[in-house]
């Protein structure tokens, strides 16, 4: 009797739902672990799992890479900031050739981050082409397209008769490393030693083109 009704000598529990009871590691902690695992897996399956993870655009072959052991006179790690070495990268161009930033050591490089949906970028493209054509020996203009399809990029290049190299930042890693969001365009002038000399947010004004040419290129 006592075993069956452990409370028989006391008044009944009026609010059993308010009790918390430890009934052993398996039935208390174990069940909690099972529930957490189940809910966690359900959440991962329905909300976190990325469909199409075989995405061919996410290619480890491209993106930011280390400098080839040469940090120049600055001897500091690359940072996308004025006076610092520009982070090196390897990206394909629209002709499927692989281009590295470090390939252009010895010449000025104007990195221009852009996208075809960006109105100012469309306005800027003809002026960048003109700049590239004006200083073919001293300046390399690299247009880094931010994650658009090669079809969209090709149409843009054709429409605007872009004369400089366009590189494809498919997964956005280079843009992120250079702290470039979707607030485009952003341009960086890198000197022959790989050091960032100028950063332009938005399109370059005529005064800035003039300064750039007179200070660095002429």
């Amino acid at each position: 009797m006592l075993l069956l009704y452990p409370y028989m000598f006391g008044p009944p529990d009026e609010q059993p739902q308010r009790k918390r009871e430890y009934s052993g590691p398996l039935t208390t902690l174990g069940i909690a672990v099972v529930i957490i695992t189940f809910v966690g897996l359900a959440f991962w399956f329905f909300e976190m799992r990325v469909e199409g993870e075989e995405n061919t655009f996410v290619n480890d072959e491209f993106g930011v890479i280390a400098l080839d052991g040469d940090t120049g006179s600055i001897n500091q790690s690359p940072v996308p900031s004025l006076g610092r070495l520009a982070p090196n990268f390897r990206l394909p161009n629209i002709h499927d050739e692989v281009v590295r930033l470090s390939d252009f050591r010895g010449r000025y490089v104007l990195l221009n981050f852009w996208a075809s949906w960006c109105g100012p970028c469309r306005k800027e493209a003809p002026e960048l082409s003109a700049l590239s054509d004006r200083f073919p020996k001293t300046l390399i203009v690299l247009g880094i397209n931010q994650q658009e399809t090669i079809e969209a990029v090709t149409v843009f290049v054709s429409q605007f008769a872009v004369s400089y190299q366009i590189l494809l930042d498919f997964n956005g890693q280079v843009s992120s490393t250079y702290a470039v969001s979707t607030g485009l365009p952003i341009s960086l002038l890198i000197d022959p030693n790989g050091v960032i000399r100028e950063i332009y947010v938005g399109i370059l004004s005529q005064e800035q083109y003039k300064y750039l040419a007179e200070t660095y290129l002429l």
Binding site: Y5, Y7, P12, Q17, R18, K19, S23
Partner: peptide, 18 residues
């Protein structure tokens, strides 16, 4: 989880004598 057992016992093994 710790609330479940007291509730379950209250339902399936209620105190029948007071």
């Amino acid at each position: 989880v710790s609330r479940f057992k007291p509730i379950w016992r209250s339902i399936h093994r209620p105190q029948k004598v007071v």
